[in-house]
Design a protein around this nucleic acid. Sequence first.
DNA 1: TTCGCCATTGTAACCGGTTACGCTGTTGCC
DNA 2: GGCAACAGCGTAACCGGTTACAATGGCGAA
Lengths: 346, 346
Amino acid sequence: MATLRDVAREAGVSVATASRAINGLGNVTAPTRAAVMAAVKKLNFVPHSGARSLTRRKTDTVGVILPDLFGEFFSEIIRGIDLVAHESGMHLLLGNMHGSTHETAAAIAAMRGRVDGLLVMPPDLKPELLSDYLDPALPTVLLNYDAGSLDLPFVAVDNYRGAYAMTEALLAQGARQVVHIAGPKHNRDARDRQRGFVDAMAKIAKERSPVILPGDFSEESGEKAARLIVEGQLPADAVFAANDQMAVGLIAELARAGVSVPGDVMVAGFDDIPLARHLSPGLTTMQVNIDRLGSTGMMMLLRLLRGDTLAAASATILNPNLIARGTTASLPGAPRASAAAGASPT
Amino acid sequence: MATLRDVAREAGVSVATASRAINGLGNVTAPTRAAVMAAVKKLNFVPHSGARSLTRRKTDTVGVILPDLFGEFFSEIIRGIDLVAHESGMHLLLGNMHGSTHETAAAIAAMRGRVDGLLVMPPDLKPELLSDYLDPALPTVLLNYDAGSLDLPFVAVDNYRGAYAMTEALLAQGARQVVHIAGPKHNRDARDRQRGFVDAMAKIAKERSPVILPGDFSEESGEKAARLIVEGQLPADAVFAANDQMAVGLIAELARAGVSVPGDVMVAGFDDIPLARHLSPGLTTMQVNIDRLGSTGMMMLLRLLRGDTLAAASATILNPNLIARGTTASLPGAPRASAAAGASPT
DNA sequence: TTCGCCATTGTAACCGGTTACGCTGTTGCC
DNA sequence: GGCAACAGCGTAACCGGTTACAATGGCGAA
């Protein structure tokens, strides 16, 4: 592979001039530049980005560290990030912590010297640990994580409010026995959603103590919950799953057992994965514009890179909105929710 | 940020020794190593991967260039790649050609010096162009692209055979008027699938000339096709869409018009996106293990990086397999396809 | 004609690591 | 005791670019 020195020799100029000509700096005569460009073509020279970024102290790359790459959630985040990164000519270096704390540290360390900034989504990490791993000199934006005590900008979804609103809506729809299927214990989203559920129940339906089943965001945990209900061990006329995945499993298992949704049991999820609107009946859920999580985070990071100092105060909270569909539509006498996408129940 | 020289000074040794101690090379005394490590801790030193890879001429990173990041297809590919990349401690640098040929060149050029190898998926690029862009010195594996004349290893899905088999199955199921919704004209997958359809029709159902509607892999083109059928302009008792996305749109629109699937029209897709099994009735489709496309490609690339010279002959062709579900289940008298996932119709 | 200024170009230091090579001091052996 | 072999460590060159600074030369002004 040709290097800049090769090009310079071929064009009969110095490396400095060759570099200037290639990068379009002003002070190069037209004929000189032409000679350099000819040499570039001839030798098939492509600049070595690694070397360039070493001296420029700028890589035009942002590191993205996600807990996993499984499923659509992450795919959408990456797409959102890429959308705005691409506009500013930035590249994406993907790191994957594969769920392990140890790997998180490794992933972050491996980014040193290859990225200008970091987008990190650490759903089940303690803030203290996180600050140990992060390099304070490296602009960093947290995704879907309320930094809390940490002085870091972040963008997150208001899971609490979303869950609260969904619970409210179910009760307004006439549900009397609302069961919540929770997500993984250590997962922040899951915990916030559960809190929203509990608080809404406490506020609106004091007399009924909230029932919470354990889950782990997988279809299987939804199925498990369904079996409890089917076998009659758990009276329920509405189930609010902490994510759509579980709701899907739940519905499938209920269908197998001949339980009608929403006739016998209403079901609601959280996330609005594309599958949700394709089920029949459609799944009522909290729409989170996942790609906006990524694009907003990336925009914040770009501002940091430009030198704007975002205070921790500059956190962005995205509000999910309720999409009412068929799975919560039919309690007799209850107001019938619109099936139109984007419609809000209030 | 601390550099290696800082560490060396702090530990009272030379940079060479510091480097050796940190990298665990043999010839360093235990006390010396301990001193270096103490300095590393104290200064919070993290090696600068950019600099390291410059001299090592090795980046431990592979570049992944995809036509786009939209939808699950790419997400699954990335997941497959990451799966095996992660095992070998490799990082992923994502490039996105955003559909434009010009950007493809830019994306490939930007990888120079930041990656050890390349995984490229250029669905609508001419081989000649591709070879212009690619650096022959950089190990490269093509994804989902038959390199043809190019002397490059690749991994691809046998779209032709898959489409052929699906068409066969529809006819065996009793269909008489099979319509194919094609994908984008310039897309290789789409063209191969169309060829498979045409050839199967020619072979098995000579008398019926194959009907082909244009499409672009989007749900909308499926809906458009549905409207043609509903309005009676196009007699059809079976539709084979070139991908699941279009099949989904088709089914939704047919449902709105009150056309029964599979009662009035059978429907089949291609890809087996997760949504497919969640529709009711389930969508019959050709299962492509998309993640395997990525993981297989990555494994081939790793072999190249290890120095094995794969001849172009080492291409891998993945065979899709037919998943029969509800949307092709009900022509009277026809053998009823099993709804079990993974079942083959023969 | 001579001087100074400016535009163009070259020399060389540097980014932050790795590593070939050489130096030193110990140890083993005759 | 003398010498070779060798382990541990340091010096400095290098990876492939960028860029501060100096050198050169052409031009207009005095």
